Simulated assay, not measured.
Amino acid sequence: MTNLEVKNEEKHITLSGWFWLALGTVLMFMVITDAFKDSENQQFFNIGFVVLFVGIAVFYKIKAFFNSKKYTDGYQDEFIKQMNHTAYRHAFYCTVGVIFAVWVIGDAIAIPFTHETMSLVYLATASLSYGASIIWQNRD
């Protein structure tokens, strides 16, 4: 593998980490605004966060997918493969930890959440932990 291809893969996985971090943040904001159901601005906040995420997704698509279509099946560099595998492992363990914590202290939660809201919490947890793991491992 040439040095340029390794740099392109590093750039791609960094953008991927920021994308998943942004997705997790948007999902978590949607959960937080769902906790305040009686707020008259809830729909405004949800639409704003969805528009923010769509803008970030378009930026990600332009930057990452347009120039790097060969990275869709996996990474060629062993270090980046290991980084991706470790990030998946972190996301899995973090999500299982949150599911277990909700199961153990579910009755003590003051605000009753619906199943849809809790599924958003699990998706946000997985997205945030995967993105944060990629960003943390790829710091220079």
Rank of each mutant, 00 (worst) to 15 (best):
I135P: 06
I62L: 13
V54H: 05
F59R: 02
V54N: 04
N8S: 10
V6E: 05
K63F: 13
K7H: 03
V26K: 00
G106F: 10
L27A: 10
F92G: 03
H12N: 06
V98N: 01
H12W: 07
R89V: 13
F59A: 07
M118D: 05
L120F: 08
N67G: 14
P112I: 11
L4P: 03
M30D: 10
W20A: 10
T86F: 06
E10S: 03
A57N: 00
M1F: 11
F19W: 07
V102D: 11
H85S: 13
D107S: 06
F113S: 08
F100R: 01
I99M: 13
R89L: 15
H115L: 15
W20R: 03
L123Y: 01
D34N: 14
V54S: 09
G55I: 08
H90S: 11
T2F: 06
K7P: 00
V31P: 00
F59N: 03
D73K: 15
A124T: 04
A126N: 00
N84G: 04
T2M: 07
E78T: 09
M118G: 09
T2R: 04
H90L: 08
N84H: 11
Y75P: 01
A108E: 15
T95D: 02
I47V: 15
I105P: 01
I56P: 00
V98P: 00
A57D: 01
H12L: 04
E40V: 03
G24L: 05
F53E: 08
T86G: 04
Y88L: 15
D73P: 02
I13G: 00
N84F: 14
K61N: 14
I111S: 14
Q43R: 05
Q43K: 11
E5V: 07
R139Y: 10
T125C: 09
L120S: 02
G24R: 02
G48S: 12
L123P: 00
A110E: 11
A108C: 05
M1L: 12
S68H: 08
K11V: 01
H90D: 10
E78H: 07
I109D: 13
T86I: 13
I13A: 05
F29I: 15
Y71R: 00
Q42M: 11
M30I: 07
Q137E: 13
F29R: 07
F45M: 09
E5F: 09
W103P: 01
L23K: 01
Y60I: 05
F59E: 07
F100V: 14
F53W: 13
F36S: 01
T33W: 03
S133T: 12
G48F: 14
G74I: 02
K61W: 12
V54D: 05
F49P: 03
N8Q: 10
H12C: 04
W136G: 06
T2I: 03
L23M: 09
A64T: 02
Y75S: 01
I105D: 10
K70F: 07
A110M: 15
Y60W: 10
G97W: 06
E40K: 06
A132S: 11
K81E: 12
A35D: 03
E78P: 01
S133P: 00
A87P: 11
C94R: 02
W136Y: 15
K69D: 05
I56A: 07
V58N: 07
F100G: 06
T117W: 06
H115C: 06
R89S: 14
F66Y: 12
